[in-house]
Design a protein around this nucleic acid. Structure first.
Length: 154
DNA sequence: GCCAACGTTGGC
DNA sequence: GCCAACGTTGGC
């Protein structure tokens, strides 16, 4: 039984088109620097899990595509790179603090705007819509997943 | 650019 | 362990 997730990306950093253009349509999901989001990766994410790829902090925030988890969690390489904005000097290779995982595009969809998500009664429970939510990775229920795919025309 | 919300830091 | 200050997120 797979789990489902919504993962936020700023399209200026990594957009759905970047994912589509990547080798094997797969990119390592790096830069998670929140413990709750990291714990989701560490404890619950498995290859095959479904992903709603969400564009945030941009002119048209919303769901931009469907992806899936394609590998297993690894230490996030950017935490050890002094040149990276995600560098974490307090993390060590012996006890890495942050994790990454491969995400593979299944298909690009029409952009489902945030306003549409908010307006859909069957999606009202989505974690990403809750007041004050800032997590870059949030769990999605099977019912929410089905409702989104249905709205996308599946 | 504004601002609400929330996480992290660090002095005590 | 408390909590004020500060930084970040992210929609608008």
């Amino acid at each position: 039984m797979p789990n489902y997730w919504l993962m936020k990306s700023e399209p200026d950093e990594e957009s759905i088109d970047d994912l589509a253009a990547a080798p094997r349509r797969t990119l390592p999901w790096t830069g998670v620097r929140n413990y709750q989001a990291r714990n989701f990766m560490r404890d619950q994410m498995r290859a095959g899990d479904g992903v709603l790829f969400y564009h945030s902090s941009c002119p048209q925030p919303g769901i931009a595509g469907i992806a899936r988890i394609a590998g297993s969690v690894q230490p996030d390489a950017t935490q050890f790179d002094p040149a990276s904005p995600y560098h974490d000097p307090k993390s060590t290779r012996e006890a890495p603090r942050w994790l990454q995982i491969d995400v593979q595009l299944v298909r690009k969809t029409r952009l489902m705007p945030l306003a549409e998500l908010r307006a859909a009664p069957e999606l009202a429970t989505m974690r990403v819509l809750q007041r004050g939510n800032r997590l870059s990775i949030t769990p999605v229920t099977a019912a929410e997943w089905s409702a989104v795919l249905k709205r996308l025309g599946d």
